[in-house]
Nucleic acid binder design. Structure first.
Lengths: 223, 223
DNA sequence: CCCAGACGGAACGTCTCGTTCCGGTTATGC
DNA sequence: GCATAACCGGAACGAGACGTTCCGTCTGGG
């Protein structure tokens, strides 16, 4: 613990003139920043917060020194990655809402969340220093709720499943995918089908009550 | 790396006269051995092979020295724990076969595997030094296959699910349970119900092929 | 009462990892 | 072209985590 509280160097890579005339990055530096973000996203998704900085650096074809020039601390890098993943996740929900037929909405939402490993992983990811509890989930929950409602109305989703159930399915499929999938084969797709079938109508109501959003948020933000 | 290859001190705790007149343990020592095994089972189940020996020791109310007097190496302790968990798992399968109606067999098997956290976890556990590939799974697979066949015959299980699908469900539910459950509440039971519903008849056949036992064994024994 | 055998837990050596530092390199404005 | 501010890579440092060892003390059971 030496520095802390240094400017997070937020990914101002969103093109020039971001806020206060911070001289734009040199071109090569900007390219590297992009690579770092991608590498960090993937590595954190694969190994969690414990992933060594050196792995991220080498994956980005960069020295560790370069990482620390952009992000004063590992925590800062992690935060940046998580925030961008959450945003991407919200976009996915909105796209589904806009593009997909109500009856297929939940199912397609889950499929899309799973198709990019890093997104859903990072969205619910929690760093050791237990940031604000469940911020990630609470931001997306309303969107998922809308998707769920539509599919229920369309009669393709069991009326007795809740948003939190969908999130649990997401977590479960993600864990199977992490376990089995390789770049060349994705056995988890079969499990995904089975799990989604469990959400379809035609089964006795579950005997155990659903988790509330708050409960689930608390769980996700600590474990 | 200094010793290695020392006698594993197999849990000869199976009462006196186990093999070659190894003087029986002093009573207090035997009690401690029991506590060590239980603690190690739980701790390894919770944290994986990376769990510090000191945690196991303190959970067993014992000094680390005592651990090393019984098991020359962390690896030896782990091996002993895993082997006993596998055996318990086989017993569960046999009990289900003997006690449960065919129609409920798979479902009850999954429920029982999940009800004791350490068992299924350890059964598919893999130490870093990648022991014999998938030995654990291959031992139980035939038993699960019998259970699956019975339930299919009874018409309560989709004819298109395979043994490997059941194992994946087991893994998935386990991961959710690890995430959510506490001594006082088990939200994963609801997810378990949903997941099992996905295995019931009345759905279109999955479009992706099942994993073979060999493939799954390979996956489990490395990740 | 004695002591082989058991016990606890401090100490040791190793290894991992976050972070720092600095000599060399390169984009960019003049 | 040139000067130079920004960059870059990656060795090195220090802290901490862990497996394992060691040794002084305690105790079950003959």
């Amino acid at each position: 613990m030496t520095r802390r509280s240094a400017p997070p160097v937020t990914a101002a890579a969103t093109r020039p003139g971001s806020h206060k005339e911070t001289r734009p990055l040199r071109r090569d530096a900007e390219v590297n920043l992009g690579r770092i973000l991608v590498a960090a996203r993937d590595v954190f998704a694969e190994q969690g917060y414990d992933a060594p900085m050196e792995i991220i650096a080498s994956r980005a074809d960069v020295g560790v020194g370069t990482l620390y020039r952009r992000f004063p601390t590992k925590a800062d890098l992690f935060t940046a990655v998580v925030e961008s993943a959450r945003q991407r996740n919200r976009e996915i929900a909105e796209e589904v809402l806009a593009e997909v037929a109500p009856g297929e909405a939940v199912f397609e939402f889950v499929r899309r969340c799973i198709s990019v490993p890093s997104v859903w992983r990072a969205t619910t990811a929690a760093p050791p220093w237990g940031s604000k509890r469940g911020a990630g989930l609470k931001q997306i929950a309303p969107l998922i709720a809308t998707i769920v409602d539509r599919s229920k109305a369309a009669g393709t989703l069991r009326p007795d499943v809740e948003v939190t159930d969908v999130v649990m399915v997401l977590k479960a499929v993600r864990s199977i995918a992490d376990l089995c999938d390789t770049p060349s084969a994705r056995p988890s797709l079969r499990f995904l089908e089975l799990a989604l079938d469990g959400l379809r109508p035609g089964h006795a109501a579950p005997t155990h009550p659903p988790l509330s959003i708050e409960q689930l948020a608390r769980i996700l933000s600590q474990g």
